[in-house]
Amino acid sequence: MLKSIHFNSQALAYLLVAPQVIITLVFFIWPAGQALYQSFLIEDAFGLGSEFVWFENFIYLFEDDYYGESFGRTALFSFLVAVISMSFALFLAGFAERVVRGGLFYKTLLIWPYAVAPVLAGALWVIMFDPSLGIITYFLKYFGIDWNYKLNGNQAMTLVVMAAAWKQVAYNFLFFLAGIHAIPKSMIEAAAIDGSGPVRRFWTIIFPLISPVTFFLLVINTVYAFFDTFGIIHVMTQGGPAKATEILVYKVYNDGFIGLDLGGSAAQSVILMFIVISLTVIQFRYIEKKVEYK
């Protein structure tokens, strides 16, 4: 007879999961619920009087041209940041893997920017590109480029994309490097014996085999560009000039904390919340199955 040990009461089981459940409730479900409730209210700044208006804040958002524009801008921004930072990281990881001498030194240097806080990363780029004091602005003048990101929206966008992508290269590099390391040497050596060169080996063996990593990073980078770039934008452009760099998360801040329109701001963060939820669902349910694992 097989004796199975099991606990008489389920209480212990509940007790053991309780900390996790409580943390989730307090730090995730409760604030999310508050945001949801707030998004149905029109309220004055001090919270002295409020009116329950159902979906009026949302309707206002969808009728607001600037919100639609901010959506498009965020999509462009995230796409550029993800593509630029991932391709650079892959490029660097592909080469770092091949370095024989001093590999660790290079790898350490490449990982370094990840330790820089977004605000500091922004400040660094601002100092280099300041329209009147920046060293790079000075060089750009020789090429006849009139650099003033405080006035030119496209230049401002270019600048925040560069700063945000640069900051993320290190993180992506780390994952790509680990992914390449995990590929059995024998496969690459076999291909080499068969006469394929390094470039061909990269595209036909390494690149397909690290596709789970690539996909994972794509989601992470999109989420990064959506949310974590707030500090960079706050330091560099504050969403300006003329909203040229106001992505969704910055608009939430601007409307809520500067404009004190809490209902409208909460409605925007609820929409952002649904975007993240759907991104995560797509990651786990849909694409992850299609990605080839070894």
Partner: peptide
């Protein structure tokens, strides 16, 4: 009311004049 935000709007629109857009 909301003049903090309105100032930003005026700033934005004036910047659009200065950069010629």
């Amino acid at each position: 009311g909301n003049f903090v935000q309105v100032r930003d709007i005026i700033n934005e629109e004036m910047e659009a004049i200065w950069n010629g857009s």
